[in-house]
Simulated scan of single mutants.
Amino acid sequence: MTDNNAANTASRYPLLAFPHIQLHGVVDDMMYARFKTQLAEAPQDGPLVVSITTLGGDPEMGRAMGADIRLLRDYTGREMLFLGKVAVYSAGATFMSAFPVEKRFLTRGTRLMLHERSMTSTINLSGPLTTLPAMLKAKLHEIEESVKIQEEGFRDIVRGSGVTFEELQTKAPSNWYIEAEEARDRGLVLDVI
């Protein structure tokens, strides 16, 4: 796309030029706090534009910010727009999934990265033999629940797009990087500006 065509595309979405909430860095409790502060300071009516640049972080913080967006949209009917800039990796894509595909935008040159959740854990079996199976079952339940949460997130990311849940499941284990134009062409976002 030429610079002139990019300018024409951007002019169709003037609200995206000045996001109300601008997030960058690691998705963690500090980003969530900045998100909540900026949300409280944003105009209380009209469309709300949220931008993010992140290499990832805590998926639960991404889900928490997304839950706030969903609740605000559901209770107020307010339009919420997502703008991914430069990098929207991992937990950033989890946050993006809270926005319907027709409300998602990426800047030119942005990459999405979708992957599976990961876990590092050591199981220390110590104690009476009768208690050990419960320890193992508890860890297994944690893994099973994490897989369910991951699948819910994958379904949210692809809902309304041309990417199937099965395709994402196949590509996620090896870190699926998606350029902005491909994301648009596959329907994961509405447009690239």
Rank of each mutant, 00 (worst) to 15 (best):
L114M: 07
M96D: 03
G92P: 13
H115W: 01
E116D: 09
R73S: 14
Y75F: 13
M61W: 10
A93H: 08
G56W: 08
M80E: 09
T107P: 00
L55D: 09
G56S: 07
Y75E: 10
R70W: 01
S118W: 13
Y75H: 13
V88P: 09
E60G: 05
H115C: 03
L83E: 09
V50G: 05
M80H: 06
S97F: 08
S51G: 10
M61R: 14
R104N: 01
K85P: 01
D58I: 15
S51W: 12
R104A: 00
G57H: 09
P59T: 13
L72H: 06
A91R: 06
G92D: 04
A64H: 04
G57N: 04
F95S: 04
M65K: 07
T94I: 15
F95T: 11
V86A: 15
M113R: 12
S97A: 15
M113W: 02
D68R: 14
M80Y: 07
V101S: 00
G56Y: 11
G57Q: 03
G92Y: 10
G92S: 10
R104L: 04
A64V: 10
F105K: 07
V101R: 05
F105Q: 07
D68G: 01
D68L: 15
G57W: 07
M80I: 12
F99W: 12
K103E: 10
V101D: 00
S90G: 04
M96I: 13
M96V: 08
P59K: 01
R108C: 04
S90E: 05
D58S: 15
E102A: 00
L72S: 03
F105M: 02
M119P: 00
L114R: 01
L83C: 11
M65Y: 13
G84M: 07
Y89M: 02
L83I: 14
S51A: 13
L114S: 00
G109C: 09
T54C: 05
L83S: 11
A91L: 04
P59E: 08
T76V: 11
G66S: 12
G62S: 05
V86I: 15
R70E: 10
F99P: 12
G66W: 12
V50F: 13
G77C: 06
E102R: 02
R70S: 08
D58N: 15
M119G: 01
G77E: 05
R117S: 04
M119F: 08
G77K: 03
A67M: 09
L71W: 03
V101P: 06
E79C: 00
S51D: 11
I52L: 15
K103P: 02
L71M: 08
P100D: 00
R78C: 10
L72C: 02
V88T: 15
R111I: 00
L106E: 05
D58H: 12
K103V: 01
V86F: 13
K103S: 14
G56D: 04
M65T: 11
H115G: 06
V101T: 13
R70M: 01
R63K: 14
F99T: 12
L83Q: 14
L71A: 10
T110H: 03
R117K: 00
F99Y: 08
M61A: 08
L114G: 00
G57K: 06
I69W: 14
A67R: 14
M119I: 15
F82P: 14
S90T: 05
G109E: 12
A98D: 02
Y75A: 12
T76A: 03
T107N: 06
M65G: 05
F95M: 14
G92H: 12
R63N: 05
E60L: 15
M96E: 03
V88A: 08
L72I: 09
R111N: 09
R78L: 09
